[in-house]
Design a protein around this nucleic acid. Sequence first.
DNA 1: GCTATACTATACTTAAATAATATAGATCAA
DNA 2: TTGATCTATATTATTTAAGTATAGTATAGC
Lengths: 145, 145
Amino acid sequence: MKLSTRSRYGTRLMLDLAEHYLAGPVHLSSVARDQGISVKYLEQIIIPLKKANYVKSVRGPKGGHILAKPPEEITIGEIVALLEDGARLTECADNPLICERSPVCATRYLWREAAQAMFEKLESITLADLVCRAKAEADKEPDHV
Amino acid sequence: MKLSTRSRYGTRLMLDLAEHYLAGPVHLSSVARDQGISVKYLEQIIIPLKKANYVKSVRGPKGGHILAKPPEEITIGEIVALLEDGARLTECADNPLICERSPVCATRYLWREAAQAMFEKLESITLADLVCRAKAEADKEPDHV
DNA sequence: GCTATACTATACTTAAATAATATAGATCAA
DNA sequence: TTGATCTATATTATTTAAGTATAGTATAGC
């Protein structure tokens, strides 16, 4: 039940785009450098984010990727739900038919409640919040002492 | 980020033991039958539960497994944390040293908060609560119409 | 003490998902 | 029209999950 690199890297990618939102499109190669993730893998992760209209791309020289809406309007919960397989911890959560025990399964509700608690938390935090936090982190821990 | 069968089956195993708590030890073979899980796999899952003293075993004829303490004193959160790899969603949550980015990583806290929200929920529910729920489920959905 | 019944420990196998890389191609601003 | 950039698809390697098999060890009760 660990978070996959897909949603962890995806969140860092979105954070990076959020930090550069006002400055315009960012190359994935620059995100790759900053975040220590391969360009190829980022290209793969960004696809669903574009399809879901969180990110748009600008082609040609001076192109790159940019958030499709302001960082205030995108929550971490949305990103994680998109990159993991929905806002849930089990298949049966929204699709009881996949398991014949669903009608009498007391544990099924547990997993729904746990997922709900977790995603409510993540949905309460926006990319803009995260940018603030990152800034605070950077101030606390300067590169040079 | 799906829950593994390990913690899902483990929870159902514990629920089964809780339901029979007053009646004495239960054979894993009977749990296996009731829950539709192989005995061999249950034997594997029960090991950490015994080591952590949630379950004790009675050997010999008429033996089996029984909760080491009343269902009221065991929470689902404890079970899941034991069978998954701790009450967390990422390695870095309690062990920042495994990732060099930890000191400047704004996302690390996200995953800690999400895990906390989730496990707080699960820790608020005991096996006794789950037994009640299961009973209510069974009443709602009778075998024969 | 014997023995059937049960739990215990470890090793192995298979299948699936994750994580990443590679190749070839399509777009479009300048 | 060129070259920087994004796009799509295929492939591979690694890890983890899930389950099975084998060979035990312990003990209650006769």
